[in-house]
């Protein structure tokens, strides 16, 4: 039945979030997500750390980047802009509890591919994974 075998690849996710409560929730959701091969999660506590990790890892280091907006050192908008300036095309999803149209537009204008309001949930995560063909 080799022909029927389904390729199950590991999805590499960079989570950019400064608050532990949101990281704990995201970890649990990613662990229980619909990704067949599992998720390899990397975490950055602010935007500058995220930019450094992406720069060091190279353009293909991650399959998905999920970033908070309000963080110390560098916010999610600036991190998104700097990651795009590196020529990285990895899907970036902005995450914030502020979800007015102007909050969404600010992320998209910075170069994010999508936006989802906090809190992250199983449904929202599965939607993101499906949208970028990662599930």
């Amino acid at each position: 039945m080799a022909g029927a075998a389904v390729q199950r690849r590991v999805v590499r996710v960079l989570l950019v979030e400064d608050e532990e409560i949101h990281r704990v929730l995201a970890r649990a959701l990613l662990k229980s997500s619909a990704v067949g091969g599992g998720v390899e999660l990397d975490e950055a506590g602010n935007g500058a750390e995220a930019v450094r990790r992406v720069r060091e890892g190279g353009a293909g280091a991650y399959d998905l980047i999920i970033t908070d907006r309000q963080m110390p050192v560098m916010d999610g908008h600036e991190a998104t802009r700097q990651i795009r300036a590196l020529g990285v095309t990895t899907p970036i999803v902005g995450l914030s509890s502020d979800c007015r149209p102007l909050d969404v537009d600010a992320f998209l204008e910075a170069g994010a591919d999508d936006f989802t309001p906090k809190p992250l949930s199983k449904e929202k995560l599965n939607h993101i994974l499906a949208k970028f063909n990662l599930a």
Partner: peptide, 21 residues
């Protein structure tokens, strides 16, 4: 959802961790 993640994911103490945080 937190309770479901704890029960389905087999991660005892998950709700307590989030509540404490």
């Amino acid at each position: 959802q937190l309770q479901m993640l704890q029960d389905d994911g087999g991660t005892p103490g998950f709700v307590a961790e989030v509540v404490t945080l």
